[in-house]
Simulated scan of single mutants.
Amino acid sequence: MADDELLATHLQELRRGTVVLACLLVLTEPNYGYALLDLLGARGFAVDANTLYPLLRRLEKQGLLTSDWNTDEARPRKFYRTSDAGVALAGILSHDWDQLDTALRILKGAS
């Protein structure tokens, strides 16, 4: 495996779990998929559409997101919002993230 492929693989693995938390945090305000892609990207969290849309459907199926169709405009859009269960999970995941961040900072300082 080439160095670039190896790096891409490890970066993808590192980001895979964090995109769930990012979506749960951002979707406390309703938003639709394409706008969510832009919002996450603008905040330094680039996500591919082929990753995001299946994730949104999975999180909704798990009861972590709710959705409603907005048909007021010419193009109907499905708006997602973090459910109460999703807010609770985001709190737990955020706490764990903070602990991991602290542990990694300690490990980096120990080298």
Rank of each mutant, 00 (worst) to 15 (best):
A49V: 12
L64I: 10
P76I: 04
R77K: 15
L14I: 06
M1Y: 05
K78R: 14
H10C: 13
L100S: 13
L14G: 01
L11W: 08
K78V: 01
L27T: 11
T28Y: 01
W97P: 00
T102E: 13
L56P: 09
T71F: 13
A2T: 09
P30G: 09
D98A: 15
L39S: 08
T18Y: 10
L25G: 03
S83Q: 05
L36A: 08
L37C: 01
L27H: 10
L36H: 06
R105T: 15
R57P: 00
R105F: 06
P30K: 07
T66C: 10
Y32N: 12
D98K: 14
L27D: 13
V19P: 00
Y80A: 07
E29K: 07
L27V: 11
A110G: 04
F45I: 10
S111H: 13
L14Y: 13
L36V: 10
R75G: 00
L93C: 05
A49L: 09
T82V: 04
R16M: 04
N70M: 02
L21R: 11
L89C: 14
A85G: 06
D68L: 07
V19E: 05
A110T: 09
L64S: 04
A2Y: 02
V19W: 05
E60T: 12
R58S: 04
L7R: 15
A90R: 00
E5R: 15
V26G: 00
Y80L: 07
P30H: 09
L40F: 05
G91A: 12
I92K: 15
